[in-house]
Nucleic acid binder design. Structure first.
Lengths: 242, 242
DNA sequence: CGACGCATTGATTGGATTCAACTAAGGTGG
DNA sequence: CCACCTTAGTTGAATCCAATCAATGCGTCG
């Protein structure tokens, strides 16, 4: 089976066998890490690029009072750090949410590949573009939406991003987050998150069971969230064909 | 006098005359735009890179109910759009806050310059790194800080970013934002922003007059904000020498 | 000088937090 | 295999920060 990275980039641009092989070739040092363990800490200067093959991670910042704000969820096919290994340090930490299969990419090898292959380079640019757009959509989420909308929006985002790498079957997907983690992502308390989740379930927008989430009514959920269904910036038909 | 872009990048890496000249050379089509006018709209596919030489702009998203969330303030030396002109469209809009002097850069010319000059390339990577870090710090701001901290944090960020391009004199700088614009940036109402500003003034952290802001006690402001004084990721001594 | 935008103030409402207790589920060890 | 323990999820009541609604002050610009 193809790697999540290949599946993700394929959604933007069809990749031939050679390109897929090259992407796989730059990955090395595959390893498995347990849940709830730090992969990087604020201030680190990671030497290599780190890529998630399987599992969920969370980017987070810890505040002086001990509270945390999650600023993103790297999913399969996502990189943990930007390809800027020489310059700068991490402005946030990253930890696994679930057990994760990780791999390492040497920055130089990726850069070499991208400068050779224009199509791959564009695909990578698209993915960083989407990442930045995601950050901005989180800002809007926290700044101008209430609890109900915020959580609905998070679910829409995860739904689409997992769909991109083929991890959604008829609205249902792995969802390993605890309510506390959801709360830390949407800027609420765990208690209020709990009550809001109950409303989402009562309104028949979602269903949860055994660390899985089912989107019962995608359109209604998107509407409730004010979610832009085009935020991945790819032709929607690509996703249908999965 | 040197351009804001040169001053900004110089803070990260000393640039020689030739490098400064090359940066200036890729700019063309200088023009002045009035305040409160859209520069780009969500969905646009800008053909060129747009750079602010003078003045303030605001990135924003409009919600269905008409409310807005500002997701960033491009300042002198900042680009409006990412160097990905071929791929993707704008996920947000940008408008001027003040009258702005803008210039255009052809994506290809910039790419060519960067692939030639490794030092310049690193400087650009640093600046995009800082931009992403800024987005994450906004998420933390909106998610986990109260009104007082949020506004203090915004002021700290602007203070440092303007300082980077030499636009701060002993804590004082141009600050053209209305209270409504501040509110749209920090996720509050204009009314509550007003009351909170009064507290910041009463606490002798800042002073405002005639569209200028003076930071009276930087350390106290940073402390109140939970601001990381190292967020620009540059040697602080560089800024002192200005 | 009138009009408009922006800042300010007051009174009220409400969404979310806080604190505390309790239940359910899952994992571990005796 | 069941008792125990821990973690995650749920519920209730009181409180609070910020939103809302409404009105007024102020300055500036045509």
């Amino acid at each position: 089976m193809t790697s999540a990275l290949v599946r993700k980039l394929s959604a933007f641009a069809k990749l031939n066998e050679a390109q897929q092989a090259m992407l796989s070739a730059i990955c090395s040092d595959v390893r498995v890490l347990p849940a709830k363990t730090d992969l990087m800490r604020e201030g680190d200067r990671p030497e290599f690029l780190h890529l998630i093959m399987e599992g969920w991670a969370a980017r987070y910042k810890t505040l002086p009072d001990g509270s945390q704000q999650i600023v993103g969820f790297p999913l399969p096919g996502d990189f943990l750090n930007a390809p800027v290994t020489i310059v700068g340090h991490m402005d946030h930490s990253v930890r696994t949410v679930t057990r994760c299969t990780m791999t390492t990419v040497k920055d130089g090898r990726l850069q070499a590949l991208l400068s050779e292959d224009c199509r791959l380079e564009q695909a990578f640019r698209w993915s960083t573009l989407v990442e930045e757009a995601t950050l901005r959509s989180w800002i809007v989420n926290l700044g101008r939406r209430d609890a109900y909308e915020r959580i609905a929006h998070l679910f829409c985002e995860i739904h689409d991003r997992l769909g991109l790498v083929g991890l959604v079957q008829s609205g249902r997907f792995d969802f390993p987050l605890t309510q506390t983690e959801i709360a830390d992502a949407v800027g609420l308390t765990a208690v209020h998150t709990n009550r809001t989740l109950q409303r989402l379930r009562a309104d028949k927008l979602i269903e949860t069971s055994h660390k899985h989430l089912t989107v019962l009514d995608l359109e209604a959920l998107q509407k409730a969230a004010g979610f832009d269904p085009n935020f991945l910036q790819i032709d929607r038909r690509v996703l249908q064909g999965r």
